[in-house]
Design a protein around this nucleic acid. Structure first.
Lengths: 263, 263
DNA sequence: CATCGTTGTGTATATTTAACACAATGATAC
DNA sequence: GTATCATTGTGTTAAATATACACAACGATG
């Protein structure tokens, strides 16, 4: 199918099969080499980054739509996904790049007619295991003919984004910090097995503050949600740390009872 | 203006000047005689209660729309208002009473054509001072020609409501409890002056548990956000309690620093 | 003027949180 | 081989906080 044709079909699909004036935006967090990362994408013809988004089909639950969108982007079926805020300001769309994009791609105003000019956007944050993610540009899947590039970016180094997406990331981060004690942050951001220092680094990165190594370990073990495994030697000139994995059942139970307060 | 005419105008207004497929619902909390109350309303021709709702105008920020809707309903300009969750399930609308209402009122399907058949609804909870509220049925204001009755109901005695509104109240309550320590719950639900037992009763009602009288007082005073006034005698056979009022500035500061943990 | 329910304040105890010290490990340099 | 170094695992102590509880003061009532 030709490129122009694909875009026209895409627009037609949005107009006919998706809820008008409602969109979703995703703040996808990953953790790699001691850094908290977020997934960003770029539209073809626009040189500013933005968050991945999605739309809700007419007969689709919003939560299902969110999982679907994220699966299409990351290839992950099992992720932690949660709405954190709904953004409804008119000025959200002040820096809308749709017009710019349209012009650059050589489409007429009529081609894009009927698309909503203003959206309410439901913000979701997702916690995914960095190594398992396969960022997929929409171009390859025909799911979004605008998306050219998609890649991870350190949370501290996020550039100026389109729309209110910078604010979205900040609100998502704030929510993440607040929910650290009653959401399964650990086993959705870390690989199956991990060391205590890794776990601590994750918490420190999210909270943005140092924690006492000894008290942290004591506390984590006291929750009774960790299983200790073998020792792990990665070649450093130091004592080998133990590998741990989460006891999912006990973790869930502790979360339900909100016993995992950290700070 | 005739009744039928008013409804047709109302529908036309929604279709032309409000965002399609987005609505708002409000869980309005008040506190009176030791009871947490919530504002419910009834449509004409339907004998099931529901939550007050609203819509966002095309050129209006969603938050502004929420304040406007609530002002129209309660007559209050200054309320604490905050979104707590966005509801997007399709089955939300399974028990939709719109059709039923339409038939009972003698309107044809064409009259109601073009109205969205499925909404995403942003849930807000509001904290208002019970005595200052003047519940206003839409009929009197032409703001909502369906609403016949509006009144307070004890949170524990809420009947089966339309749509997913019972769930909404539960989620709002959960959020309220969780945010008790970093939101200005106190001075939005209580009158300007209040006694310590009143304040405690409020906290106990929201949290759904008893608190130690002495420790509660000690803690509240330790925050340094209360100003003690005169003694207050309401005629009971007991020692007169002091009246307090909040030092708004210090309260705000304590909230910002999240120092008001209660349980 | 004794009684009763309620309010204000204090104090002792238990629990939790925070601060800190030391031994063990395993690669590296000499 | 052995000393060095960064890092890990565990314990101990002091401070802060939360909890439990006791008593005196007040003001209407009979």
């Amino acid at each position: 199918m030709e490129y122009r044709e694909r875009i026209l079909r895409f627009i037609e699909e949005i107009k006919t099969s998706c809820l008008p004036s409602v969109s979703m935006d995703f703040v996808v967090f990953g953790f790699h080499e001691g850094q908290l990362k977020v997934l960003l994408l770029k539209w073809q013809g626009v040189d500013t980054w933005m968050l991945p988004g999605g739309r809700v089909r007419m007969d689709e639950n919003m939560e299902d739509a969110a999982y679907r969108s994220l699966r299409e982007r990351t290839g992950l079926a099992e992720v932690f996904l949660q709405q954190f805020h709904t953004f409804g300001n008119v000025i959200r769309n002040t820096y809308y790049a749709m017009e710019e994009t349209r012009t650059k791609l050589g489409f007429s105003a009529e081609d894009f007619e009927g698309l909503p000019h203003r959206d309410i956007s439901v913000g979701f944050y997702a916690l995914v295991e960095y190594t398992k993610v396969n960022p997929t540009p929409g171009l390859e899947l025909a799911l979004d003919p605008f998306t050219e590039q998609i890649q991870w970016c350190n949370v501290e180094e996020v550039p100026q984004l389109l729309f209110d997406h910078n604010e979205m990331i900040q609100v998502a981060l704030k929510t993440l910090r607040r929910q650290l004690s009653y959401q399964p942050i650990g086993y959705t951001l870390l690989p199956d097995q991990f060391t205590m220092p890794q776990l601590q680094q994750l918490y420190e990165t999210i909270l943005g503050q140092r924690l006492d190594r000894r008290n942290f370990q004591k506390r984590m073990l006291s929750y009774g949600i960790l299983e200790r495994g073998e020792k792990f030697q990665n070649g450093g000139a130091y004592k080998a740390p133990y590998l741990y994995r989460f006891d999912r059942e006990k973790y869930q139970q502790a979360l339900a009872e909100e016993r995992l307060l950290v700070v």
